[in-house]
């Protein structure tokens, strides 16, 4: 297993290097720093201010090769900073990116953790319920509702939720955020509710399929033959055996717990990492954007390795070799 993990980590490092080189090409070579400077300083900025901005942000140095000082290049700077997690300053307003990430992680986790903690068990429970009542009207209705629910864009959930639950019924504040824990719950309730609702359709349908596949297996028939009741069969036998595909699906969502939901945060005015990313896109803030992409890639690879390890826990038959 250790050899396998080492191999995965080496491949992960190679992938990260590839991501970093791609980010360098995209955000440093392909994007014109003059454009970024003009966007940051405004239309009325004189050419001298633009030139000074380029110097201040290190964009005046050679990109890849500097015969006089081989390490004084933008490529070396980019790689060494990213690997040391020294993210520097935003292109848009010179604010330290690390400080911005620290301020954004709280609000992001405030949305994504409850969303995950409520959404996953609820989806599993509903899927178990629908699978339990297989071939009845509940199952058929459940599938129809799931297909309808997953066909609707999350934007509609957000706007519909804000209009119906915020504006018409006045159950929740329509948007906003407050770091005070008492008030934060009030503001986070609607985005969490909408996020859970938007994810239910696809999750319940997928988990139902997984559970139904398991209920047709021999060990389920054996359990029933031995007198196990319906509830025991579903919870003690089907659920644990269905965990591998569930784990695979869940592992894909974990990096987004940290990078945030772009749309939810943006529409609900939550100053989290998703909002930071959207803002960076809107402001051509490539320094922030490449940090967000880099962190997303790191998280993705870390979660993939962790998921591989988790497979061996949920299913002792799995061996990592």
């Amino acid at each position: 297993m250790i050899a396998y993990l080492l191999r995965r980590l080496v491949w992960g490092a190679v992938t990260i290097l590839g991501v970093l080189l791609f980010l360098f090409w995209l955000f440093v070579l392909y994007a014109q720093p003059e454009d970024v400077a003009r966007r940051a300083l405004g239309e009325k900025a004189p050419p001298e201010a633009i030139a000074q901005w380029l110097v201040n942000h290190g964009y005046d140095r050679p990109a890849v090769w500097n015969p006089e000082a081989p390490l004084d290049t933008r490529l070396f700077d980019h790689l060494s900073r990213m690997l040391r997690f020294d993210f520097g300053a935003s292109d848009a307003d010179d604010a330290p990116i690390a400080a911005r990430l620290r301020s954004g992680i709280g609000p992001t986790l405030g949305v994504t953790l409850p969303l995950f903690a409520i959404g996953l068990p609820l989806s599993l429970a509903l899927a178990l319920g629908v699978a339990f009542f297989r071939d009845t009207y509940i199952d058929r209705l459940g599938v129809v509702v799931c297909v309808l629910a997953m066909s609707v864009s999350i934007l509609l959930y957000i706007l519909g939720g804000q209009f119906l639950l915020g504006k018409l019924l006045r159950w929740f504040p329509i948007s906003g955020f407050d770091p005070d824990p008492g008030l934060a719950l009030r503001f986070l309730a609607l985005p969490v509710f909408v996020g859970v609702l938007a994810g239910l359709g696809s999750d319940v349908r997928f988990f139902r399929t997984v559970f139904l596949e398991e209920t047709g297996r021999d060990y389920v028939r054996t359990a029933r033959a031995k007198g196990a009741g319906d509830a025991r069969v579903m919870l003690r036998h089907v659920l644990p055996n269905a965990m591998i595909p569930v784990l695979s699906a869940v592992s894909l969502t974990i990096p987004f717990l940290f990078t945030g939901s772009l749309l939810l945060e943006s529409f609900f005015g939550i100053p989290g990492l998703g909002s930071i990313t959207v803002e960076a896109i809107q402001n051509n803030d490539f320094a922030t954007l490449r940090v967000m992409v880099y962190l997303g890639a790191l998280l993705f690879i870390a979660v993939q390795v962790a998921t591989d390890v988790a497979y061996t826990w949920v299913d002792p038959r799995v061996r990592l070799e």
Binding site: Q162, I174, G269
Partner: peptide
Amino acid sequence: MRFEKEAIPSFTKFVQ
């Protein structure tokens, strides 16, 4: 002062 990115929720909160 609250920073609102989206105009419609902001206006709704004003009306409320």
